[in-house]
Design a binder for these strands. Structure first.
Lengths: 216, 216
DNA sequence: GTCTATAGACTGATAGAC
DNA sequence: GTCTATCAGTCTATAGAC
């Protein structure tokens, strides 16, 4: 998956415009992005955007598809691996996300914003509508784990929400937290690195049988 | 704090425009909001927006100030209360947030989006720049708790991130999760209600001395 | 106070020169 | 392929009738 922000020096004009468009779209969102911003970012003339891609919307569509499909697929490979435990899968998914989000910190806010403005359209665009979490091998492992406990662990939906929250939200809230604490981007990334090991620990706490005592 | 979406029937034109503007701004963000949208939402003519508020930007400024200041103050009252424990404060803050976010599910994404586009400006606008978390009574209680432990609990910054993540992120991700699971808005709100008691339990797990064993 | 009409700037997209 | 010039539509804001 190519989600880094490097400029490939020998790429074609078409690719350079795509790279520039990807950066601007993700930073500002579809609505707030002007085709002139993309032209400036690419270093080429405004009219070339329409020459290569016909319209702003088609350019957006192409870029987003390319950007997400390989990432979604890499997660699907992890959750369907028959040789790893639930705990190992969780660690791998967390690593996968933290790698990707460290490279693309603007991505979660962008995705949530676009999904908010038209859920069905955007999820179909990135191919997330075809993902069926319940049909994964991870889901099967979870069901087996739940069956072998006296007390049920936390509801899957809450567990999923919590794991996603702990991974993704700190990236979204980065600007707020850095603004309040005064820590710089590098120090903040170090905090995110610490979380690679901390999040698996925190989520494992939620799966403990001691959960039983809570149902009051 | 008036953050509900009720239309007050006997309010003036000025107030009706403010109410309409608040709804539209929060739903779509500043950049994507057109003054025509506000005019339509209010039922009045486009030109009255400028008659009463001079410009889109000044109207935005007024509304956002009013919307947040009372909420921030209500949280400050909780964190500076000398008669409640850390645990009680956490529960009260969680209740405060879940109440507010259930009424205004679009708010977190709106805030994060605006902060992302200009952190200093927006945080000053809502008065959050003057908030000093380290000077609160809660911070003092935390320091005392940490001093009485052999092993330090989780770093305050991670604890803060995690608590905020578990509260706020599920509201942001609501559209995605509802889209994937097919559950409706009311069922989703029920899940959020469950979290009132679950989040304090989960965050308490992170404060346990068993945390000691993690530092490998 | 509330409306219609329109100015002036900006947007996405295209025609045509080279 | 890449550029300049410009169109047609939309945006915020204002002037002026009532």
């Amino acid at each position: 998956m190519d989600t880094n922000n490097d400029i490939t020096p020998n790429s074609s004009t078409e690719d350079k415009i795509k790279e520039a468009a990807r950066r601007v779209f993700i930073r500002k969102g579809y609505a707030a992005t002007r085709t002139r911003d993309i032209a400036d970012e690419s270093g080429f003339n405004l009219s070339l955007i329409n020459y290569y891609f016909r319209s702003k919307e088609k350019l957006f569509d192409i870029i987003i598809k390319e950007h997400f499909q390989s990432f979604i697929q890499s997660v699907m490979v992890i959750v369907n691996n028959r040789d790893t435990s639930i705990q190992q899968k969780i660690q791998l998914i967390i690593n996968n996300y933290i790698d990707m989000l460290t490279k693309n910190p603007d991505l979660p806010l962008f995705v949530l914003k676009e999904i908010n403005s038209d859920p069905d359209k955007f999820m179909a665009m990135i191919g997330f509508d075809k993902v069926n979490g319940g049909g994964t091998y991870l889901a099967q492992q979870w069901a087996e784990m739940a069956a072998h406990r006296k007390a049920p662990p936390v509801k899957p939906i809450h567990f999923l929400m919590n794991t996603a929250s702990l991974i993704i939200f700190p990236f979204i809230a980065g600007p707020v937290i850095r603004n309040k604490t005064g820590i710089d981007k590098e120090q903040y990334n170090n905090l995110m690195e610490e979380r690679r090991k901390l999040i698996p620990y925190w989520v494992s706490l939620m799966l403990n049988d001691s959960y039983e005592g809570l149902n009051n």
